[in-house]
Design a protein around this nucleic acid. Structure first.
Length: 294
DNA sequence: TGTCATCGGCAGGAGGAACG
DNA sequence: CGTTCCTCCTGCCGATGACA
């Protein structure tokens, strides 16, 4: 293995870090970062994509030579664990970062799922997978009394209703019922690989892109009522958000917003909602100072 | 001095490989 | 075959530098 021949470039160690090793001081964060870059760069001269074992070995050597400067320590200067875990992890992270988008040097070849793009070229894509918090990502059973054909009929029906009646029809009981029953059909389309574009989703499931359609779908997907959850979050965190912005005394835009009477609350009749609504407005207002929200 | 774009470090999830 | 380990990947955010 190349690691047995590898020579750590001690001569390239930053002067201030060298001084720290001589005096037994901890490495300054910037020196530590700089040193990691130097070491990884040297490793990559012999191996473009060093694996974890290689990073472990190098970190072990560095820590064994200068333990008081590099080893994992607690506040009482006692070594934590193997002592070189953090440095090894950071070296590996640096390797991964440098190798971002470097397809040729991957240790594991990615699963190939080719997708032809508009310009005719093919590219590999990863399918979307079950994500944290979902309880109904890819349902398997169609609702009782339904078939694939009946679900497709329902989809066509509600798409036609959208065409004639518009998005407000989302509140109609028959639309609600069909949206609920076709949830499995919606999920299978959304989870397909390559994933559908927004335009395709809009064409197939126009009501899904209404506020109610999204909220209902989200609730079935995660079991969470997003409207209730946002309201609760604003209740509990709104005051804290305002406190934060009140400390931003240098930003005149924020202070101007704080000084304004609250005319932005969508539920102005409820005094209890004010901290949350004001906090949310400030949060978004701050974003809008710098960039558009897409 | 403030804004913006880019870089780089880090956390954490997904999933394949290795292991017992 | 289930569990653990490791790699790949992505998003977030602070640091940094260019520029007005």
């Amino acid at each position: 293995m190349w690691i047995s021949e590898f020579e750590i470039p001690w001569n390239k160690m930053p002067a201030s870090l060298l001084k720290a090793t001589l005096t037994g001081q901890r490495a300054r964060p910037e020196d530590r970062r700089s040193w990691k870059r130097i070491v990884v760069s040297a490793m990559q001269e012999v191996c473009q994509n060093p694996n974890k074992a290689a990073c472990d070995e190098i970190a072990k050597i560095i820590v064994s030579r200068y333990p008081s400067t590099f080893a994992d320590m607690n506040e009482e200067d006692e070594q934590l664990g193997i002592g070189y875990y953090s440095l090894a992890k950071q070296l590996k992270t640096r390797v991964e970062h440098v190798n971002r988008n470097n397809v040729s040097e991957k240790i594991r070849k990615p699963r190939i799922m080719s997708q032809t793009s508009d310009d005719g070229s093919t590219k590999t894509v990863r399918s979307k997978v079950d994500s944290y918090g979902c309880i109904n990502w890819q349902p398997k059973c169609v609702p009782e009394g339904e078939t694939a054909e009946s679900l497709e009929d329902r989809r066509k029906d509600i798409a036609a209703i959208f065409q004639s009646a518009g998005p407000r029809a989302v509140d109609r009981p028959d639309v609600d019922e069909s949206m609920r029953l076709t949830y499995i059909y919606q999920r299978h389309m959304l989870n397909s690989c390559p994933p559908p574009s927004i335009g395709e989703i809009e064409e197939h499931w126009p009501f899904l892109l209404t506020k109610r359609g999204l909220c209902d779908h989200f609730k079935t997907l995660t079991g969470i009522d997003i409207c209730d959850r946002v309201g609760e979050a604003l209740q509990s965190k709104g005051t804290r958000i305002i406190n934060f912005f009140q400390r931003q005394t240098q930003n005149r835009d924020i202070q101007r917003l704080l000084a304004e009477p609250d005319r932005h609350s969508c539920s102005a009749s409820s005094d209890e909602a004010l901290p949350g609504a004001r906090g949310l407005h400030l949060s978004f207002g701050r974003c809008n100072c710098n960039k558009e929200i897409h």
